[in-house]
Design a protein around this nucleic acid. Structure first.
Lengths: 172, 172
DNA sequence: TGTGCTCACTTGACACTGCAAGCGAAGCTC
DNA sequence: GAGCTTCGCTTGCAGTGTCAAGTGAGCACA
């Protein structure tokens, strides 16, 4: 395991993790690696989509007129604008999303979910939700699920605001 | 937010997430994106290492003779053999790790942490642990930290064994 | 009007990753 | 001990991500 307990020759003297903490961190670190991986795998297998691409389409599917500015989509999907731009390239090629200049301000670009894109989301969502349920909520007690919500919020608050990204508790 | 609540026209009828679950999932998903990012950022900034590279070196620093077979390192660092091979390429170029054929079986390759690599780990560890503490343990109550350990274990168990990777609870 | 700035986005260069094919070393069978 | 298979690792390639530079629309102020 990575060195989280005190090394033999420590230069500074930070507070090393005790046994409980080490174990928690180990469990968290594993989850951090494997859960996104598992969710991506399900979407890739069943829908040919990355989790990020799915999030982009799912988000558009909940927006008025299935339309939203690129920068808003990027923020809501937890991704950079560059990443979104490339994802929209891919989704456009597949006919699920298209771009359109914002008539009210030519600097903005609107991403629009097409009818085919809507169908794709409607068809993909149940399997994805089922996987989230299977991997996250089924194994946990109700109390743990509630705790998880608080734990996630606290950790995100500690990370602090990412430049240009959603403030701590905006659900948007 | 992505569509985890029921869409207007659902084809199948899975169990959609209720409000509590949606909120938990939202918090978890955000954490899943931002925590690895924040940890990587700290290591990159302070040590010029990715989290994965750090894990590789940290793991070697705890191994007998600072040496271990490539395949073992890959497994312990939660990475593929390809990924490890390339990471060791990079770390070798910087003089922190070197490869050596296993004298007992020429098929294996041993990764060895050099003296310079050891120094690098010793120098990097305190800052990294401090960041883990700042982002994870300081914001949580003791009880939450303990819960997190169980939560992580349950979710990893649900994901199941990844091919060739550590079984559920082997600390190895 | 025009010059220059800012803003939202895209694009080019480059880095990292996984898949699958390739490689040499071991082991197995005859 | 020749030939096949298996094993552990590396490598070519394609895909996706970031950073920084580029583009074009709007805005501000002379």
């Amino acid at each position: 395991m990575p060195r989280y307990a005190r090394p033999v020759e420590a230069p500074a003297e930070p507070r090393w993790l005790d046994d409980d903490e080490s174990q928690s961190w180990l469990a968290l670190a594993g989850m951090l690696v494997w859960l996104p991986d598992a969710l991506d795998a399900q979407l890739q297998r069943d829908a040919g989509l990355s989790h990020f691409e799915y999030q982009v389409m799912a988000m558009l599917s909940m927006s008025p007129d299935r339309t939203r500015r690129m920068s808003e989509v990027a923020e809501l999907a937890n991704g950079s604008l560059t990443r979104l731009s490339r994802a929209v390239d891919r989704l456009s090629k597949r006919g699920w999303v298209c771009r359109r200049p914002d008539p009210t301000d030519g600097r903005y670009t609107l991403a629009v979910l097409t009818d085919a894109g809507w169908d794709k989301v409607v068809q993909t969502a149940p399997g994805h939700v089922a996987e989230v349920r299977r991997l996250v909520f089924d194994p946990l007690t109700k109390a743990q699920a509630r705790q998880l919500s608080d734990i996630g919020a606290r950790i995100q608050r500690a990370i602090g605001p990412r430049d240009g990204c959603a403030p701590p508790s905006s659900g948007a």
